[in-house]
């Protein structure tokens, strides 16, 4: 803390993850390593205990990089990432298991050859926390917490539905009682009703467990729903960061307005709609990605037409 810029640890900072003027560029490697253009430029962001920050923006705007920086997966090129006022790189060992991530596709974090229970217990097993029985009990408790029956621990991931798998992934992230969780497009691949369950689960769990959360998504409606405040990214920079109420009203930045416009909110009327004419609207933007065609039974079918 000799440079005097890093904030001193204060009581307010308990459980807070802070990005302090962080920039990031991918290095090219090699002797004359040139840095690429900044993927993230001068971003400052704080996620306090019990709070969810939503991060929206188009693909390639640097959302996922922010997540990786906040988790300490990538060190920033400039600036600092701090947890409770201390830079991450100075407390790597202490932070093990206290930061977790939930990804878009649960199959990315669940080993298909391991029983669900084993996967959920894995962060504990790796950290050699508790005895076998203790871990076993904990897995049961967590599955229950995410609304799954304890018996599911004996199943393999492919025996579960997409929504159940995502719950398992969440249980796995929660088992170390983390201080901070990054949800990276965690509900984007889910169907509307499963998405609703998962979003509610995240909200409920956060109220109970009090972790800080960074919710990354390109789905404005989902972000607005779970977040306390929303940061809008564009080309590596945060162009607007406001409490979520602003996004239920009218946000400042033109791009934020475009995002909010993509959610057609109830009661509003759309003048000059692309279809021409004016009509009353009532509805929403459930905006989640369908799985690639390859996953459906009708998929890939056409090869046989050859």
């Amino acid at each position: 803390m000799s440079d005097g810029r890093a904030p001193r640890p204060v009581a307010d900072d308990a459980g807070t993850v802070r990005l302090d003027s962080v920039s990031f560029a991918y290095g090219r490697g090699g002797l004359f390593a040139r840095r690429g253009a900044d993927v993230v430029r001068d971003v400052s962001l704080a996620v306090a205990k019990g709070e969810t920050i939503g991060l929206v923006g188009e693909s390639g705007s640097g959302k996922t990089t922010i997540g990786r920086l906040a988790l300490g997966v990538n060190p920033p090129t400039r600036g600092q990432v701090l947890f409770e006022g201390v830079p991450l790189e100075r407390q790597r060992r202490q932070l093990r298991g206290r930061f977790q991530v939930v990804l878009q596709h649960p199959e990315w974090s669940l080993n298909p050859r391991l029983r669900v229970g084993t996967s959920v217990a894995e962060p504990l097993t790796v950290g050699k926390v508790g005895t076998r029985t203790e871990r076993h009990e904990k897995v049961g408790a967590l599955l229950e917490l995410v609304g799954l029956h304890e018996s599911l621990a004996q199943r393999y991931p492919h025996e579960l539905s997409g929504g159940q798998q995502q719950r398992v992934a969440i249980a796995r992230a929660l088992i170390t009682q983390p201080d901070f969780i990054v949800f990276d497009e965690a509900v984007s691949a889910l169907d509307v009703s499963v998405q609703a369950q998962t979003l509610n689960l995240i909200k409920t769990l956060q109220e109970a467990e009090g972790f800080a959360a960074l919710f990354i998504s390109h789905d404005m409606a989902a972000v607005r729903y779970v977040s306390d405040s929303v940061a809008v990214m564009m080309a590596g920079e945060i162009v607007e960061s406001s409490p979520v109420q602003t996004f239920y009203g009218s946000p400042n930045h033109p791009y934020s307005r475009l995002l909010v416009d993509s959610i057609v909110s109830s009661g509003e009327s759309l003048t000059g709609s692309p279809r021409g004419g004016t009509h009353a609207t009532a509805a929403l933007g459930a905006d989640q990605e369908k799985r690639p065609l390859g996953d459906t039974p009708e998929a890939g079918a056409a090869r046989h037409h050859l």
């Binding site: 509307v192 009703s193 998405q195 609703a196 979003l199 409606a221 989902a222 607005r224 729903y225 959610i263 057609v264 909110s265 109830s266 009532a282 509805a283 929403l284 933007g285 459930a286 905006d287």
Partner: peptide, 10 residues
């Protein structure tokens, strides 16, 4: 039910 499940109108 679909309308009530999707975030955006709440």
């Amino acid at each position: 039910a679909l309308l009530r499940a999707a975030p955006g109108r709440e």
